[in-house]
Write a protein that binds this DNA or RNA. Structure first.
Lengths: 239, 239
DNA sequence: GCAAAAGTGTTAGGCATACACCCATGG
DNA sequence: CCATGGGTGTATGCCTAACACTTTTGC
């Protein structure tokens, strides 16, 4: 009898019940403006489990690792299969392998990802719903702890890399970039100092275009493609 | 026919030849004073592979994940079995899962570790030898890339955590602590500024004892146990 | 004109760097 | 007493935070 620790997934190769199996899950973050609030907040999609264990509970999107695919490819595939999403940024988070994290032995390689609101397909996907990252219900398995760790990593990494750009369109104003930082860090940033810091970092290229529509027009910027999105050291070019 | 991607290891549960298997390897660093040199340099142990693939080549110590043990326990166990070492610091590095990294499908959860020179048992262990981390021979599988990434992580982490203490005895002088930093970062540090930085960080407690024997005696310090060895966020208390 | 956001200027404080200098011990 | 590492003092420059101020638009 086969059990899964992720939703909507089935093993693709024959496995004995006693063997350790490898699953891949993804914590994928986006920003959304809550109704009634001016600020953005971090949200993520969860899927309902359709079988035991934890049937009916919410869980991270994921599935089994196929024999012929890399870990990152498995993360992308299972994310697309369960939620229809294709993230703009994807990075390995951690491998979870406690013996008792699932009734059967499962090692989960967890990825975390970013996606812009406009990249999310219209219309809801079956069994999928978006939740505020700070007020999650009890999730299946150790997925609450996994989300906590992913949030910690996101907040950490926004301080020393350009991952915030993974949540923005090609062109954006400094205010929009600042709102991304404010949502992730959950605190206000001084617009003047923020401008100087980010302008001095060399990661932004000013354009000739302006965002108009309210008050004084704001200059649009684009990414400097020469700068890495995130420092990953010797792994930056591989998977 | 069973193949392994780590030395001196054998699967403990029946596996089909086609199934993806989970291995655990460890990059364990120590410091040693090279003959003729005043400075310390980073070294790590490798084991010779005793079977195909890559028979005869040097590889990271490791082995298969047992069905009933956690990832970290597997790292500790396989490290002890192959090298006889029990590290003072152990942290997960990355999960490597490229399809072509081994003739059979193997996902390797790699840990990295620190050990003091005085914790290394006397007498050489069979098939094990220590290498300078910066001048390694071609290793089996993707182990060269893994070591590069572990070195990058070590150098990064020494800047924002206290992991250097994992390479020192309970009591140590500031010069000894500075030598650890200099070896890892491979550059000289100003003794005066280093002292102020580390004294101001609150991680050290001065003792009444002094290291004597040459010139002016140097005060011995010990760790402040209240401060985490390394920030791991929500994972700091678990495995 | 007025409100509000875009954008600039200025100051104070903290921290890293560089380096001059004094202290204490072994030989 | 002298060489050497232990340890202190201090000036400089950079970066951050705080906030006053000017500019430019919509209404």
């Amino acid at each position: 009898m086969t059990r899964t620790d992720v939703a909507l997934a089935q093993p693709s190769v024959a496995q004995t019940a006693d063997a350790t199996r490898v699953a891949v899950s993804t914590v994928i973050f986006t920003l959304r403006r809550l109704p009634g609030s001016e600020r953005f907040s971090v949200a993520l999609p969860l899927v309902t489990r359709t079988r035991d264990p934890h049937e009916g509970q919410w869980a991270l999107p994921g599935g089994w690792l196929d024999h012929g695919e890399s870990l990152e490819a498995a993360a992308s595939r299972t994310l697309a299969e369960t939620t229809g999403l294709a993230p703009s940024y994807l990075e390995q988070l951690y491998a979870f392998g406690a013996v008792d994290r699932s009734p059967t032995r499962v090692v989960s390689i967890v990825y975390w990802a970013l996606i812009r609101a406009d990249e999310i397909p219209d219309g809801s996907v079956e069994n999928t719903a978006w939740f505020d990252a700070t007020t999650l219900p009890p999730l299946a398995f150790d997925h609450n702890e996994i989300v906590d760790y992913a949030l910690w990593r996101l907040r950490n990494k926004v301080g020393y890399s350009r991952i915030a750009h993974g949540l923005l369109a090609d062109e954006f104003t400094l205010a929009e970039l600042r709102e991304v930082y404010e949502a992730i860090l959950d605190r206000r940033l001084d617009p003047a100092n923020f401008r100087r810091q980010v302008e001095g970092s060399g990661t932004l290229i000013p354009t000739d275009r302006f965002r108009t529509g309210s008050h004084r027009p704001a200059r649009l910027y684009r990414y400097n493609q020469d700068v890495e999105l995130a420092e990953r050291g010797p792994l930056s070019t591989r998977h």
